[in-house]
Design a protein around this nucleic acid. Structure first.
Lengths: 218, 218
DNA sequence: GTCACGGGAATTGGATCCAATCTAGCAGAT
DNA sequence: ATCTGCTAGATTGGATCCAATTCCCGTGAC
């Protein structure tokens, strides 16, 4: 994972994620391999390998002999993602909090500051990335790599909507405030409070994303 | 999923799973694409696509320019898999039980009978397959497709060891007995009892698999 | 007007070929 | 003896080409 990105399939995978996240590729779109490969400047082989990993994450769906399509997230699917996140993130936080040193907590605080800085600059893309680093710093600290991986899959499934969520100034402000509360609980090593704050934090975003989904496909 | 298997990559994927399950490909082995492709009678392209999906399931690990290797399951990883299964299966069962009709319960009972029949015939491979159908009939009834998919991934990660578990006559007998108890709880629509039985059921297999792992890599 | 049925274009699936990278083994220096 | 640097072989990564399947659209029968 941390190996330097050299292969074309990795570059293509990153490009695909970005295109899905920015809406360049919209839910329901067929992915025409020939044209996309040309756009990325590679052949179809590495593109297809990247698509296979996106398929297993549920970001695209595959129909043999018909091709890959950007997944359409239904409301039911969205709610399921958040329900599973609730379950798994609580587990991660409870496992992580007791193991964190003061230095670790400071590092997490630094990441929270980066999220806020991006919010102030109204850099939505950077905020999305920083926000993810902040939350996963906590999750990864649990030392349960499989759990981390499952959570990454679930987060990626709703990446497109999270970026939209950060578009609104009100949401950006709320996120910063909630992160600050979470840091307080974290410094107090109060795992249960942190879980509760995390749940509220997530509930706010699910409400917003659900509203977005509703207007898009009524 | 349920589309008929026509493409070579699907066939190769099934073949790879089977080879890993039977130990034809052992943990730690490098997968030499050329020779494996030849053995399966296909070119390297569909093989590589199948490997990509196994990679995302954690069945194989991938190092750029070095290749794919069959994953080695550490004790820590094993315990993590079972810990996550405990969490997610409880959720699935609680969601599923209230929705099941009498006909559904009968269908599950039929699957339990198939497991027992395979056990009596000492058909380990068939027992593995039937056992999986039995448990997932329950999980899938929750109507949470993402949850089902995560559980499939977790089960697949330990498939190789489950087959070993069924090798022992004692284990086969215990499994049948525990399934019977679970059916009783299911008929009573007692989700909590079912969750508890499921946990015990799982604990037994984790103990056995842990013992296997221990003697293999001390 | 609707439906069934070709037939050709578009698209995907897979095979083969070449380039890039890694690995193993040897030669030589220290 | 050990370490370093190099070369040759093996292996993977990617591009191109051909085959197989699907899709789209026009034609004709009713």
């Amino acid at each position: 994972m941390s190996e330097r990105r050299v292969t074309a399939q990795d570059a293509v995978l990153a490009a695909l994620r970005s295109d899905i996240l920015t809406g360049e590729l919209e839910p329901g779109d067929q992915i025409v391999q020939e044209s996309l490969a040309e756009r990325y400047g590679v052949s179809r082989v590495p593109l297809r390998e990247a698509l296979k990993t996106l398929e297993s994450e549920g970001q695209v769906v595959y129909h043999p002999h018909r091709g890959y399509f950007v997944s359409e997230l239904s409301v039911a699917d969205l709610l399921e993602v958040y329900r599973l996140r609730e379950l798994l993130e609580a587990e991660a936080i409870r496992a992580a909090v007791p193991t964190l040193t003061d230095a670790d907590v400071d590092a997490v605080a630094e990441l929270a500051a980066q999220v806020e800085a991006a919010a102030d600059r109204v850099d939505v893309m950077e905020m999305t990335v920083a926000n993810r680093r902040f939350h996963f710093a906590l999750f990864d600290a649990a030392g349960l790599p499989r759990l981390s991986r499952l959570l990454r899959q679930l987060w990626e499934a709703t990446d497109a909507y999270r970026a939209l969520y950060f578009q609104s100034p009100g949401n950006r402000e709320r996120v910063s405030g909630e992160h600050a509360q979470m840091m307080t609980a974290l410094r107090a090593r109060d795992a249960e409070a942190l879980v509760r704050l995390h749940d509220e934090h997530r509930d706010h975003s699910v409400d917003a994303v659900r509203a977005l989904l509703g207007e898009r496909s009524p």
